[in-house]
Amino acid sequence: MIVDANVLKYGDDINTDLIIPGKYLVITDEKRLGQHAMDGIDPDFYNKSRNGSILVVGENFGSGSSREQAPISLKNAGVKCIVAKSFARIFYRNAINIGLPILECADLWSEVRDGDTLSIVLEQGTITNKMASRIFQANPLPPFILDIIQHGGLLNKLKKSL
């Protein structure tokens, strides 16, 4: 799987309440959730991301709540992949389970700018910054996690097994 898109860059410790504030948790329409993604940190996020983006973030992305609405809102705001220095545990599992690819790469953050174009090969975990012609290596995803993402999420795998 290859993901190509422009970078939207944010910092460390972006928690689930910033990604999708509690007041939006009653929204059941995923498209509408997408319009409120990152509302707590960048009210203009949806307009920047809607045509496709790769989120490049710092440490501990997605800390806090177990709300799956957090990765769902990002996916529906056009986020194709998230590359973080590190993720909080529940968010990490939730993103994979809804089929939103995520990678951990410590080196990338300081070497990209907002608007750079990245090309990511998920199977290998290689990230190419097309603007700087540089290649970064993320921690490769374990095969069973890659399998979930290639199915488009855990539900599609479950459907097959039933």
Partner: peptide, 12 residues
């Protein structure tokens, strides 16, 4: 704590 997709799998 886990998310809703995993919980669906646990329920099944």
């Amino acid at each position: 704590g886990i998310g809703s997709t995993e919980m669906t799998s646990v329920f099944i």
